[in-house]
Amino acid sequence: MNKRFATAAEAVADIFDGATVMIGGFGGSGAPIELIHALIDAGPKNLTVVNNNAGNGHVGLAAMIEQGMVKKLICSFPKSKDPKAFTDRYLADEIELELVPQGTLAERIRAGGAGIPAFYTPTAYGTELGETKPTAEFDGKPYVQERWLKADFALVKAELGDPYGNLTYRLAARNFNPLMATAAGKTIAQVSRLVEAGGIDPEAVVTPGIFVNRLVEVENPQQEEVLNQAEARYP
């Protein structure tokens, strides 16, 4: 078995118009910048993107939005230091936003990966983000029903990967990545170092390879904050 792809371009080549794409990361931490930029080069349109944020500056997800590739964004916090790419399109009604509380977003993705179609959470009860959803009482407390979230593709960033797709993550760059890896038809991981089978201690594996379809090694990956400090733009 070898899930390795030689280039990011090959790994994302079949992401089609209208696809739902989960993109890992929290702000720039854990954002798979090289996979996103390869997707910009490929240029599919009308995508629904699931991410915690809405990009920052003019690279990564912000650049995808600037290129007009994103029809709908599902996120919790579409603000950043430089949110212009999203804000302009949102205010011009050129992009749809589904705003989801952060913990609900995480749990919807987890549920999607775990085969749980719906669940109840206290989050958003009595607020405008919960008002159109079914509610129920459990042990005397009200809860909101939320549905699973699944995607056609997930783009994730990991630290180590092996040919079986087992992954580890670096510092707080883990965040949404392991959840999204479970919830997509095809999970594509960029790893900073691809090691031989046995090169990752099985006790240290965070995402087991069953959840990962494709691996691309990207040594010294770019970091959104560093690119933004240099006022980088993509393409």
């Binding site: 931490s29 230091k81 883990r174 959104e224």
Partner: peptide, 25 residues
Amino acid sequence: EDWDLINAGKKAITLKPGAAFFDHA
């Protein structure tokens, strides 16, 4: 700063001994 190590405000942080990482769920 190590930009893989941030808080919810996207500011860089440091770890204390005994810190732990985990996913969003």
